[in-house]
Structure formats: C-alpha cells, structure tokens
Amino acid sequence: MNLFFALMFYVATALFVVGLVRKIVDFARTPAPLLIPTTPAPTTTGGVVLRMAREVVMFESLFKSNLWIWIFAAMFHVGFALVTMRHLRYFPEPVWTWVVLVQPFGLYAGLVMAAGLAGLWARRFLVERIRYISTFSDHLMLALLLLIAVSGLGMKFLVHTDIVAVKTFFLGLMMFDIQPLPDHAGLHVHLFCVALLLIVFPFSKLLHAPGIFFSPSRNQADNPREVRHLAPWAAKLEAKN
C-alpha cells in the first residue's frame, strides 16, 4: 500500500507538472493574430492586469451573468484555496507561520467547499439547460472533488487518522524515502482521489485555470489604433506584398 501510494504520487505529480507546463507553453506559443478584447476592455497593460485580477479573484464576468453559479463557484474555489493552504502544513518542517495562521479558516473552508460543490452538482440535475450541456465527465469531476472533500472532512470530524504519520509519509516522499502510511480507508480514498485529480488536471476542463490567463478577449489591451499588433504568421503575408 505504501509503495502503491508513493508511486502513484510520483506519477501524478510528474504528469501534473509536465502536462501543465506543456499546455501552458502551447497556449503561450500560439499566436493571437487579431485584437479581440471584449468590452469593457482596458486600454493599458496595467488595466489588463487589474481586469484579470478581478476575473481570477472575484469572477467578475460570472457575477454579471449568473448569481447562483457565482455563489456556488465562489464557495467552492475560495474553500478549495483555503483548504489547500491548510494542507501545506504536510510539506515543510517546521510549518510556515502563515500556514499555521490559516489552519482554523481552512477547516470551515472544507465545509463551504463541499456545500459549493453540492450546489454546482445540483444544478447539473435540476436546471434543464445545464443538464443538456453536461457530459459524463462533468459529473465525474464533481464527484471526484466532492469525494476528496467528504473523505477529508470525515477524517476531521468522524474517524481521525494519524496525521503525524501522514506528514512523515509526505516528508519521506519528498526525500525519496518511503515511510509507512496509516492504514485508514478514508485516508486512502482521500489520497487516491487527490492523485487522480492531479493526473486529470492537464487533460481536462480544469485547464480553465491556466486558460483564463491566455484568453485573448480578457488579456488584451484595447489599443489597436496606437500600437500595431501583428502575429508572426501574419507578418509573413506582409513580406509577400
């Protein structure tokens, strides 16, 4: 079991990092030949940074379009972010101060995250339009995330596991020294699902996370009359004149 999880995490981490870097490089290298920012578009790079920050942190466009999705999405994402921060305590020794400070928030965030996921999933059944566009993988993705949340909360509120041993396992993993993992079904489910999440990340719609930074309608400055924007392949057409 120890070996299985150790290997799985090595493979998952490698796939996650390599897959994501490849995809980001691919996004970055693909040219955007025309300026297509969507109104309201800022005219300067500074404005673009602010706009992107509002989109990433506050989901500005989603807020304008659908309050229910915004609420559930915000619950999930903010919850997930805090939970992830809380889990950073498993990696450094001694634990960084800010990670210590975030601990109590991370706990409630787990509940909020699960509630957000449940809300998002409910929409896939209850709203006709969302039901129509949902694929099987959309459901599986929510199932996976919810399973991670529920198994994690279960270890906190129902059947505890030996978290000191868990930390020893991960510290060992980072030094390529495989340590025993507690024999705890909830923990095994939790870790298995997390590894699975890392694996599917670069091959699924989770690419919306890096994708938004490369979305031309959101990351371009609206200055076409002042600055000429020319993609390399378009510049080659010019040479033919």
Binding site: K23, D26, F27, T30, P31, A32, P33, I36, S61, L62, S65, N66, I69, A73, R123, V127, R129, I130, I133, S134, T135, D138, K205, L207, H208, G211, I212, F214, S215, P216, S217, A231, W233
Partner: peptide, 24 residues
C-alpha cells in the same frame, strides 16, 4: 487553425460547462 489562433485553442480547452452563457 488551432496553431494559428490562440483564441480557438484556449476556448476549446477552457470551457467548464458552467452554463453562465446558456440564456444569453
């Protein structure tokens, strides 16, 4: 086209089927 237009490439990958656009 996927190699020439970042818009197309990113848009093909990034959609999460959230449904925000469905009534727009």
């Amino acid at each position: 086209l996927l190699g020439k237009y970042r818009s197309l490439k990113v848009y093909m990958d990034a959609c999460v089927h959230c449904g925000a656009c469905t009534d727009k």
